[in-house]
C-alpha cells in the first residue's frame, strides 16, 4: 500500500483546502490522508483527516528551515506517498527544501491533482498564466496546492496524534521581528475584491476604492506598483504572478492596465469588472464588464448605485 498522503498549510485559512486535496489524492491512491500541523493544532481546523501534530523542541513554524526539518523527521520515520503543501511563500520554500533533502520530485504550484499510472499529475500556470503545463512525477513527491483549487471540507478533524521530533538549530536566525500588514491568506480566500492600480494619483485617493469595497463587503487589493514601487499598500495586498493568486466571485480592477503579471493572479475570478480611462487597456480584454471613464467619477457613482440597490 502507498504511504500516507500528507497535507500541510502554514496558513490556517488554507488548511481546509489542502486537507481536501490530500483526501482526494489519498482516495485515488488507496492511501490514508493525514493533515500535518506544526507546533499546535490550529483552532477551527477544517479537515476530515487524521491530524498529526509535529512538535520540536524549538518552534518549527518560525522558520522554513525548521518546518522542513520537522516534516522530514516525520517522513523519514513513517514514509509517505505524497506531500501537499498549501500555496504560501513560506510553503513554497518548505516544499523545495523537503524535495531536495529527500531527492523526490517537486511538481510546483498548481491544481487538478490526479494519479495516472502511479504518478502524481498536476496542472500549473506557466508563461504568465497564458499556458497550462501538465507535469507528472513519480511517487513519492511534493506539490504545492494553489489557493482556491479545492473546497475546504466542512468537517471537524479526527483525533490528533502528537509526534515529537528532534531538529537541529536552524542555520538562519531571526534577530528582529516587527508586525507588517495584513496576512497574505486574507485576500486569497476573499469572495469579493476591489483592486487599485496606477490610475490612482495619490495615496489619499484610495479611499474611493475603499468606499466601494465597503459597499460591496469586499477586501481591498492592488497591483504590484502600489505595494512595491509606491508603498501605498502592504505587499500582502499585492495580487498577481508574484503576489497572491485570487479566485473571488467578483473582482473589480480600478485603474489597473492589466499587464500579464497582474492578470495571471486574477483569471480564476468568476466575474471580472474593469474601470479604466484607457479604452485600449488590456484589462478590458479579460473583463466581463467594463466602464471606460475617469475612475474619480465612475467609482463613486458605482458605490452610490450599489448602496441604492
Amino acid at each position: 500500500m502507498t504511504g500516507a498522503v500528507l497535507s500541510y498549510s502554514e496558513s490556517p485559512d488554507l488548511a481546509g483546502e489542502v486537507a481536501a486535496a490530500g483526501q482526494e489524492v489519498a482516495k485515488m491512491l488507496g492511501a490514508e490522508a493525514v493533515s500535518l500541523e506544526l507546533d499546535e493544532v490550529s483552532p477551527g481546523l477544517l479537515t476530515a483527516n487524521k491530524v498529526v501534530l509535529v512538535k520540536g523542541e524549538l518552534p518549527l513554524e518560525a522558520i522554513a528551515d525548521s518546518a522542513a526539518a520537522g516534516i522530514l523527521e516525520l517522513v523519514k520515520a513513517r514514509g509517505f506517498g505524497a506531500l501537499l503543501i498549501a500555496e504560501t511563500r513560506f510553503g513554497t520554500i518548505v516544499a523545495a527544501k523537503v524535495a531536495a533533502r529527500l531527492r523526490v520530485g517537486s511538481l510546483g504550484k498548481g491544481k487538478k491533482l490526479r494519479v495516472d499510472e502511479g504518478r502524481l499529475v498536476i496542472e500549473r500556470d506557466v508563461y504568465g498564466g497564458r499556458f497550462t503545463a501538465t507535469v507528472a512525477s513519480r511517487l513519492p513527491c511534493v506539490a504545492v496546492v494553489q489557493a482556491g483549487a479545492y473546497e475546504a471540507a466542512d468537517a471537524s478533524p479526527g483525533p490528533a496524534e502528537s509526534v515529537a521530533v528532534t531538529v537541529g538549530e536552524p542555520k538562519v536566525a531571526i534577530t528582529q521581528t516587527k508586525q507588517g500588514q495584513q496576512g497574505e491568506a486574507g485576500i486569497k480566500s476573499a469572495l469579493k475584491i476591489v483592486s487599485a492600480g496606477r490610475g490612482f494619483a495619490r495615496k489619499e485617493d484610495l479611499v474611493i476604492a475603499q468606499d466601494l469595497a465597503s459597499a460591496l463587503g469586499a477586501s481591498l487589493g492592488c497591483s504590484r506598483p502600489l505595494s512595491s514601487d509606491l508603498g501605498w499598500m502592504g505587499e500582502e495586498a499585492h495580487i498577481g504572478l508574484t503576489g497572491a493568486y485570487v479566485h473571488p466571485q467578483l473582482y473589480v480592477a480600478i485603474g489597473i492596465s492589466g499587464q500579464l503579471q497582474h492578470v495571471a493572479g486574477i483569471k480564476d475570478s468568476k466575474v471580472i469588472v474593469a474601470i479604466n480611462k484607457d479604452a485600449h487597456a488590456p484589462i478590458f480584454q479579460v473583463a466581463d464588464y467594463g466602464i471606460v471613464g475617469d475612475l474619480y467619477e465612475v467609482v463613486p457613482a458605482l458605490t452610490k448605485a450599489l448602496k441604492q440597490g
Binding site: 511538481l107 497550462t132 512525477s137 480584454q285 473583463a287 464588464y289
Partner: peptide, 22 residues
Amino acid sequence: PDTGTVVVDVSVQSASRKRVIF
C-alpha cells in the same frame, strides 16, 4: 536526483470573458 518529473503537455489557456462595455 532522477525523480521522473516530466512536463507531459503545455497548452494555451482560453479566456472566455463577456467583454461588455457600459
